[in-house]
Computed example of a mutant assay.
Amino acid sequence: MSSASALRAPTAQASPAPAREQALRPEVNDAHVRFVGLGKTYPGQAQPALQGIDLNIRRGEIFGIIGRSGAGKSSLLRTINRLEQPSQGRVLIDQVDIAPFDEDHLVALRRRIGMIFQHFNLMSAKTVWQNVELPLKVASVAKAERQRKVRELLELVGLAHKHHVYPAQLSGGQKQRVGIARALVHDPEILLCDEATSALDPETTASILELLRDINQRLGLTIVLITHEMAVIRDICHRVLVLERGQIVEQGDVWQVFGAPRHEVTRSLLAPLQAKLPAALQANLRTSPGASDAALVLRLSLLGAPELSELFSALGGRVRLLQGGIETIGERAVGQLILSVQGSPHALPLLLERARRWADEVEVLGYVV
């Protein structure tokens, strides 16, 4: 069955979004996955796992979902291939509601949606080749086609030379590469990643992210991933969604959300990536000046790379850079600077106003002598 026919069925109940809606909301046409008023409540739980989720995931993007433990990340991800059935609302793939799909159409749909997992889920008694080939055998794909496909995928993930070995002989990164190859056997259009790098060391994580980025660009896949590792979102995703208690609290381009987080939950999640005060300075930080020579300490969140000499001149007085820097996220410059300002001629309200001309967000951390 072709991907088009898999997503059309059953025709009597699933239909594209109305033409009027598409005309009024052109972003709908770019959506590969749509959530409309999505909710999920598990039996015996008063608090919904998901509620009021309205979201478009664009075709061909890498989309990240973050949140605290229990925020609903896995529940949301698993509604895309209907491993979880929503309690309210709709999930649409290519503008088709997947709720009415019977078992046959779900099987066809899930072959169009690959999935990789944190713990690899490989069969220990089968070789690398056999692990990748197994879904094709289950789908009764001809032997010659199976061999061609497995060979191509092992080349893609850099494991052609390991085709004969067993999972116990592989590193964690190599096992995940096998999992990625297996997820791609049916030429999916969507790839779901459930904490795919959480069991890996930082160096291996970087190599897996580079592989996912290459797959996204080469095959044009839409990739949706959940993770508790904020650096993963920063390094690979185009856009990100923040969940808290099953609700969307923030979303947007990664460079913008990471550069100037708006919600307290987002700020808390991103805190490990933020510039921190040196310990000695933190110990001496006070809530009020206490002395005429006290310096005001500011944290500036930046969307762009400022001209520091002009920024320092605008603040006036003696300005020192205590901590921070600029990095590139999604080809955009973002960063944080922690500054001390001593002897500025400007009163605090005017000083903050001048700082906000350069920074998207300004926070007063305190005073030091």
Rank of each mutant, 00 (worst) to 15 (best):
S301Q: 15
L277V: 05
A333V: 09
S309Q: 11
V297G: 01
L321P: 09
L281C: 03
A260Q: 14
Q342Y: 01
G366S: 10
G316F: 02
L348P: 09
L273V: 07
S301P: 12
P289A: 12
S268F: 08
G335V: 01
R262I: 12
V257W: 02
Q274D: 12
S344R: 03
P289N: 04
L315F: 07
A314P: 00
L281D: 01
S268R: 13
Y367H: 09
A275T: 10
V265T: 14
L270S: 00
E331F: 12
T287G: 12
L311R: 01
R318H: 05
E361S: 12
R286Y: 08
S313R: 13
A283G: 07
P289E: 02
V341F: 03
I338N: 11
E264V: 09
S340E: 10
G316P: 02
L281N: 01
K276A: 14
W358I: 10
P278D: 06
L277G: 03
A291H: 14
A279L: 07
V334L: 09
L300C: 10
V362S: 05
Q342L: 03
E327M: 13
A271D: 09
G290C: 09
V334Q: 11
G316A: 04
H263K: 06
E361F: 10
E363N: 12
Q282C: 06
G316D: 06
T266R: 07
A283F: 09
R354W: 01
G317I: 03
L300G: 08
P289Q: 04
R286D: 08
L321A: 06
E310G: 07
G317L: 04
L281Y: 01
G317Q: 04
Q336M: 02
Y367M: 05
L273Y: 02
V368I: 15
L281I: 13
F312C: 10
Q336V: 04
I329K: 04
L311Y: 01
G290T: 12
H263A: 08
K276I: 06
I329F: 02
A305Y: 15
G366I: 06
E307N: 14
R356Q: 15
G330M: 05
A291G: 12
E307G: 08
V319F: 10
S268Q: 14
